[in-house]
């Protein structure tokens, strides 16, 4: 058997690796090259311009505004999503108290689990279109029709610049929470029941159980969630592009880096400049992931 192993393994790998190299790695590498050109998307031989795109980027107020929104997402999205997901997962798995020695969730937890996960099944583009109708600023919007019927003035979820970014965060959290509920549930179910039992015997309340037992034992899973959500915060493209007023408006109030990359490349035909922005985003995302993994490294608890 041993001597046929390598051709066998290579036979399996060669096609996916080739596809990956051609359609994922090579465009990435090319983006690095285009970042140093003035390519408009048509010319066969674009001119090399050195670091001009990057210096221009540094003075571009739209770029900084978009970066600011990405950082806002980076802070808010993981924090809110993980907090809600942890709470829900705890209630679904542990919060119901113990019955016959095994911990269980609150009544109806199986049903809730499906409900929470449902948004994850839909693609972001579909969610954006749905929320367009839910958040419509006139009386035919799903929320505003109620607001209007109650006698209040309509809420401009997407048209009020101070509110619009929070609306985006809200939709992103709504979409993401279900997945992390499932992720944390899996983590919680692998925590041995006797630890809870022992803690309960010592008189720990549910809140103490959560903070002293669940949270520390779930730390690795939370760390993974944080990295995933952080990366998602650097994206948010589909939602911003489809849902918001004027693609990232009103007046740039919701724009993010990925949206500006798209606009520069496909509206302004400045592929070189867009590539430069892509390169910056690439390093931002990379730095974030490395930093998170480094800073949050700690002894994992064996059980």
């Amino acid at each position: 058997m041993r001597h046929g192993k390598y051709p066998f393994v290579i036979g399996f790998l060669v096609v996916p690796v080739l596809l990956y190299a051609v359609f994922v790695i090579s465009p990435y590498v090319q983006a690095f090259y285009y970042a140093f050109t003035d390519w408009h998307g048509i010319a066969a031989h674009p001119k090399l311009v050195g670091f001009a795109n990057f210096t221009k980027l540094f003075h571009d107020s739209v770029f900084w505004k978009a970066a600011e929104h990405n950082i806002m997402l980076l802070l808010a999205l993981p924090l809110i999503t993980i907090a809600i997901a942890l709470f829900l997962a705890f209630m679904l798995n542990v919060g119901g108290g113990s019955r016959g020695g095994t911990r269980s969730g609150v009544w109806g937890s199986k049903f809730y689990r499906v409900v929470f996960f449902l948004p994850q099944v839909l693609s972001l583009a579909i969610i954006a279109v749905l929320f367009q109708e839910i958040l419509r600023p006139d009386n035919s919007g799903a929320i505003n029709s109620i607001v209007h019927a109650l006698g209040f003035s309509n809420i401009g979820f997407l048209t009020n610049p101070t509110l619009s970014m929070w609306t985006i965060i809200g939709v992103l959290v709504w979409q993401a929470v279900g997945f992390y509920v499932v992720l944390f549930s899996a983590g919680m179910s692998s925590i041995p029941g006797d630890i809870y039992e022992a803690a309960e015997m010592d008189g720990a309340s549910r809140i103490v159980l959560f903070f002293r037992v669940t949270l520390p034992l779930l730390f690795d899973t939370i760390q993974v969630a944080w990295v995933y959500l952080g990366i998602a915060a650097f994206d948010a493209f589909a939602l911003v592009n489809i849902l918001t007023v004027d693609n990232g408006g009103p007046d740039g109030a919701t724009t993010v880096l990925a949206n500006e990359i798209y606009r520069d490349a496909f509206v302004y035909s400045r592929f070189g400049y867009a590539s430069a922005m892509g390169v910056v985003l690439f390093f931002l995302t990379l730095t974030f992931a490395v930093l998170t993994l480094r800073l949050s490294r700690r002894e994992s608890i064996e059980y």
Partner: peptide, 21 residues
């Protein structure tokens, strides 16, 4: 609507990103 395709690959790319860099 001016729907653009969402960029979904960044997550998978990340794992190989440091080597690629």
């Amino acid at each position: 609507a001016q729907i653009a395709k969402p960029d979904l690959n960044r997550r998978t790319v990340l794992k190989r990103a440091s080597a690629l860099g």
